[in-house]
Nucleic acid binder design. Structure first.
Lengths: 206, 206, 206, 206
DNA sequence: TATGAATGAGCGTTCATTCAT
DNA sequence: CATGAATGAACGCTCATTCAT
């Protein structure tokens, strides 16, 4: 998976940042983990900040890939739209199991972004993109549901993004935390909400 | 409120940590803000980490106070229980406006705790306590609602805690983010969920 | 001469900067020469730049002292004014012998100032002050000479400052250079100039 | 004028060194400016120091050219010799306007040479050559003036070289400095000196 | 000739922490 | 309790130089 030296550094950064966090990881640590000279990391990456962002991008690539494959066309009806949403949550469950480390890195990014303008900008963009993925599904569902609601799909998407990330945070803080149960509960709330806003008693959740 | 030197340091730490974040704040900065010698902070606090934890405890005190005052007895009926939940969300809106800085500090704490066992333990305790406050309301509401649900009140509380913190995070990341709208949307979802699980069409949200 | 630690660092800096020059001297070199920990130099001096400026100030102090003692009152007549100028040049001869190292440092300062705004400002001020000392004598002489000249005393002062520093530069570049002879030649030119602008054949140079 | 790669590097070095100074310029900067790989500069030039010396030699070439053209034969009489000197100063005025950057580079060279033997040797040679140009005129003038002076033409040349360089330094340090006025004042002094040493009231300066 | 990846020593600076007073 | 000088390790980063291709 690591053809180029650049990739080797990126992957060494991934491992080291995940293990120790942004502030406890030095460029030298990363270079050492990659088995290269200390100066080389700066040859490929302008600064430690840039390396962090690139590392996360690199780590997210497979997830983004997977997501794009899944969200092929526009959903046909309510049922299909709901199904996409449901699947999205299931996917998140899996990611939380397989890539929890990546989320640790992302929360590091959030933390750094809170006090560092350059990273802050990258974080904002990242979050907006992520939330938009949810929002597009939310819009599809609510459009198909017909019965208009007081709340905008984008606000719902913000809540769902918030929930998912808050759940991740709890899992990160306490590995014993049952994230699956929480995601299921979230789905119940979403499903109930959709049911209440579509004509029928329609949904047989999960 | 700051009688002792220890308190002066604590409050100086609060101001400084909030303004600049944990990693960008030095012990010297804090001592300077407190108007004491750099060495003195180490007389009262074992290390910078310990000071961080104590500072947040100190900073949260008024909020905890307020919350305890509000949640005096056990709610009498569904309507009262719901009202308490509703009020809780309204309170959060206010806190997001008046104490956003504190949340920045808390997310700093989360970040540090993710890679630092000592802080990690404090964070876990902190989160558990915070979520329990929500859970107690959730339990009251669901008990009053009568119609039992597939999902446990604690799972619901986890979702709500997640949402609230996720919303806070979005607000922190992007000050333009409309947290009020998101909290309102969250309430709609909660209210719908309660309505669906209580006999009547009961709730006239907000 | 070195009571305080600060002074010890200043003097270590003087020795090291003179020997190796600003760019070849590291803060660690200076700390080592002073026999203190590497961090301590930054405790007393904000940056390497500041330390350079302070070091020169410290090195110049005795010279400035000497100069102030000498230039007590305003000269009474032409002859006295001329005498002061003549003495100034003699003094410079002595300084070139006793403090050549200091001038090496000052030329370093000039060099750094040419590419560094902060130092550049300090250098400008330094030069202006230095030239003013010459200008005040020049003004006194030309006022006493009576016969007004096409050239301003300040322009003459600029030339004399230039000559003195250019002579110093030559001495620095080539220790064999006969600075005394050059300064004598400079005096001949100055004396001739004064003579031509005062009524009489007055001056019996040197 | 830049046929060979070597020349391209030399000219890129000139532009970059002038703009940023020796210590603020990296070999990479120069290579980039020249549009070649970083390693190539070391193929043509043994080290950064060597490149600096060669660059100045290269940069001075047109000035040296111009000077050689002007000083064709030996001057016929006093008036012609004086005229050559006068012209030299006028030329310097022009160079200070057109090539101030070059002088910045030269002072950089002086600075480096003060602490670096290899460069120091090159500087000494450079200065000797430069001063000799002035000395040859001074000798011609003083020979033609007839009335022998206590001071040697070479000492006078040293003073004039000093003045010119000191004036340049002032201009470099403070761009507002009126170098023309200073050079004019220098000429007044020189002219007065010549007049005093030639029989007649001869000179109508400038 | 020319490339550019790679090296590794070294830089200025920061800072939690200690300790003599 | 309180001071603040002193420590020393570590940091992000730069850069002249080398060398396989």
């Amino acid at each position: 998976m690591a053809d180029t030296t650049r990739d080797r550094i990126l992957e060494a950064a991934y491992r080291t940042l995940v293990r120790r966090g942004y502030h406890e990881t030095s460029m030298k640590d990363i270079a050492e983990e990659a088995g290269v000279a200390p100066g080389l990391a700066h040859y490929y990456f302008e600064s430690k900040e840039h390396l962090l962002v690139e590392t996360i991008r690199h780590g997210c690539a497979p997830l983004v890939e997977e997501w794009h494959q899944r969200s092929a066309g526009t959903p046909a009806g309510l049922e299909e739209a709901v199904e996409i949403g449901r699947e999205g949550l299931e996917m998140q469950k899996g990611e939380l199991k397989r890539h929890l480390e990546l989320f640790r890195l992302i929360f590091d990014l959030f933390g750094v972004g809170l006090h560092n303008p350059r990273i802050g900008a990258a974080v904002q963009e990242f979050v907006a993109e992520d939330r938009e993925r949810i929002a597009s599904v939310a819009r599809a569902v609510m459009a198909a549901a017909g019965q208009p609601s007081r709340v905008q799909p984008d606000a719902i998407a913000a809540v769902i993004w918030a929930s998912l990330n808050g759940i991740t945070l709890q899992k990160l803080i306490n590995p014993e935390f049952d994230a699956d149960e929480a995601i299921d509960a979230l789905w119940e709330m979403i499903a109930t909400f959709i049911a209440a806003h579509s004509g029928a008693a329609a949904l047989k959740a999960s």
